[in-house]
């Protein structure tokens, strides 16, 4: 997770983009499954069941804001975006940069006149969106409900076979 970022799945982008161009939500076509492997050093890749989520939600804009041409869920977005137009950029990563904290990005900050100056990065965009909604609909929210830890992950969290041998010394005093 710490080393998240750069190798953000070009693959994913390509799948999504082509899918989006080919079809529309409800009216358009969409990928059935998306494999998300940006945290692959700590966790196994997550296979996201997009089709299931399409069925479970009423409107694409619940996740895709105003980019799918299916209306606008958030009143703030609606102030500018009327939501009836399908946009070229639909995949999360198209707007939510994988690594907005890279030194380059930090040294070229968004100019003051840009309205979207507070976008979460890709990792946060996923998690905020998923967990935010899962809390409301009682979906899974624990880390390992979605992510299976790799050995590197266990090492990072000092868990599993890397768990502290004896917890005799107190953690704080």
């Amino acid at each position: 997770m710490v080393h998240a970022g750069k190798q953000l799945m070009t693959g994913l982008g390509v799948i999504l983009l082509s899918a989006v161009l080919a079809v529309g939500c409800y009216a358009m076509d969409y990928p059935e499954e998306i494999e998300i492997d940006s945290l692959v050093n700590l966790y196994e890749a997550v296979v996201f069941d997009h089709a299931m989520h399409v069925d479970a939600t009423e409107n694409c804009s619940e996740c895709h804001h105003h980019t799918t041409g299916t209306g606008v869920a958030n009143e703030y977005c609606a102030k500018c975006h009327n939501g009836n137009e399908e946009m070229d950029l639909v995949a999360c990563v198209d707007c939510h940069s994988a690594d907005p904290l890279s030194p380059e990005n930090l040294h070229n900050p968004t100019p003051d006149f840009v309205y979207h100056n507070d976008q979460p990065n890709l990792k946060a965009a996923y998690h905020l969106n998923c967990i935010g909604c899962h809390k409301e609909v009682d979906g899974p929210t624990g880390c390992e409900d979605c992510h299976a830890k790799t050995e590197a992950g266990d090492k990072f969290y000092h868990s599993g076979e890397f768990a502290p041998k004896e917890s005799a010394h107190s953690s704080g005093h």
Binding site: H158, G160, P164, S167
Partner: peptide, 22 residues
């Protein structure tokens, strides 16, 4: 999720925690 605690531990080369970070 305590991931930040784990990240700090790794970055700052801190000693092993008494309990796992998860």
């Amino acid at each position: 999720c305590r991931t930040c605690e784990a990240a700090c531990n790794e970055e700052q080369h801190l000693p092993e925690p008494s309990k796992p970070f998860d």
